[in-house]
Write a protein that binds this DNA or RNA. Structure first.
Length: 262
DNA sequence: ATGGTTGCTTAGCAA
């Protein structure tokens, strides 16, 4: 039975995380891992290390900040970097390609910093540009997996303390509306197909004992269009990977799709 | 209410 295992994981530097990443790939054998915050220029991307565990990567990186990659066993085709919308944007945050007939995207949505920041406006504009990208470049009805660090908690179940976070960055109405506008293109949050519980997080701040106190947010999501959604048999967050020294501040999100022969 | 930690780069920014 053919299965497609798709992962979204903000690595917070692929070079700082390489040992953990290789071990995780070896143990979990995903078909494609959508990575965010690789924080490395393409020339220094650790292709050889990935090859040692049977993986290759399509990359879209930059120095110091941001950077996305599609890490897979099979070759990814029809790769696109950025939105191609004519906006002069040096930030490497969006990468897509095709694997077994499925369009797969790795998106690193801007954090936004604070509601008063220019970065917040950039975040809202970036999300609008992503929706426009879908309108222009993807047909409804094709199987799409839109994966990433969204830097938005969709609802209060996704926040450790909604009263503290309410209306603030990562949880504000405008961010949620901009994300919903993307979801309304035709997506389902695959994690929520299988778990309605509150308190399931994918990110915990390094500071203030965020993880030990389970003060997290669920901001990493794998969205699937109808064709793919109908075949999603499992989705979970690998919370254990957040444990211990040398962990990213994000845990991997995993979704499995059944019988994909498209 | 503030400060706490990690990564990149090397003092300060971003998250």
């Amino acid at each position: 039975m053919a299965e497609l295992k798709i992962v979204s994981w903000n690595l917070n530097s692929i070079r700082a995380r390489i040992d953990r990443l290789l071990a995780w790939l070896d143990a979990n054998q995903p078909d494609v891992l959508c990575a965010q915050e690789t924080k490395v220029v393409d020339e220094l991307f650790p292709h050889e290390a990935l090859a040692s565990v049977g993986y290759r990567a399509a990359v879209h990186g930059q120095k110091t900040y941001n950077g996305v990659a599609l890490i897979s066993r099979e070759e990814i085709t029809d790769v696109v970097c950025g939105f191609g919308d004519g906006v002069d944007d040096p930030q490497a945050r969006f990468l897509g390609g095709t694997l077994r007939g499925v369009r797969v995207f790795s998106a690193y949505v801007p954090n936004g910093s604070s509601l008063e920041s220019e970065k917040y406006q950039y975040k809202l504009e970036w999300l609008a540009r992503l929706r426009a990208y879908l309108n222009t470049n993807e047909k409804a009805g094709t199987p799409v997996a839109l994966c990433g660090d969204w830097n938005v908690a969709p609802d209060d179940r996704d926040i450790h303390d909604p009263r503290v976070w309410e209306g603030g960055i990562l949880c504000s109405d405008k961010e949620r509306a901009a994300l919903k506008h993307i979801v309304d293109w035709g997506f389902t949050d695959t994690f929520r197909m299988h778990c309605e519980e509150a308190g399931k997080f994918s990110w915990w701040d390094y500071r203030m004992l965020g993880f030990p106190k389970n003060k997290g947010l669920r901001i990493d999501h794998i969205y699937a269009t109808e064709k793919l959604r109908a075949r999603c048999i499992e989705s979970n967050i690998d919370r254990d990977e957040r444990k211990g020294k040398g962990a990213s501040d994000h845990a991997p999100v995993v979704s499995v799709f059944d019988c994909l022969e498209i």
